[in-house]
Amino acid sequence: MTVDTWQIVAQGILGTLQLTAVGFALGALLGLPLLVLRISAAWPLRALARTYIEVTRGVPLIIWLFLIYNGPTQIDPALGSVFTSWRSAVLAIALVSAAYMAEIYRGALRAVKQGQFEASRALGMSRLDTATRVIGPQMVRVAIPSSASYAIGLLKDSSLASTIGVFEITYYASVASSNTASVTPFFVAGIYYVALTFPSAWAARSLEGYLMKRTA
């Protein structure tokens, strides 16, 4: 295992982090309007959101990547320059994350006790105040641990972007592996992923412990 291998694969760390961060941030943002649709009073909107969430989560990420990256070229090969590796990967991750995040938000909303809504209403608070001052802050506490573990999962799932040529950890590992005909680069990649996820998992766990203590 040469120093070289470590350095080559390390070139992808930044790419992995960027892809995960941008994709997750977009997904977390898009998840909010999706939540509003999912709990809307109008059933067609609700059904639409539900269908989007179920289908998006039900199809493997790799299919979304191929579909977005390769699909448009069937219509017009020139679209290949619009849907670059990076953009396709960000888009695919964001669309899938939005579905997962909307469900995490919904779970958090359900965890807020019914009495809180009733108390706010009894106090005569407006719907906006109820959402932003009472329910929102309580939802955040519940949603943070599951969002964190979702983001950690995404860090690993971002490895799939290597298959459409995004320059991240697994991509450099594949290149190095085929150049040297050895498995070492993949071991190195594995170690980098564990090194990235281990502290995040630990941080998420202690954050959860901290939040449990504060709400208990």
Partner: peptide, 19 residues
């Protein structure tokens, strides 16, 4: 467990296949 969970399935496949 943490190593198993921390390693992406894609990397796990490559490691087993080539390793």
């Amino acid at each position: 467990i943490e190593i198993g969970r921390g390693t992406p399935a894609l990397v796990m496949l490559q490691v087993v296949y080539n390793g």
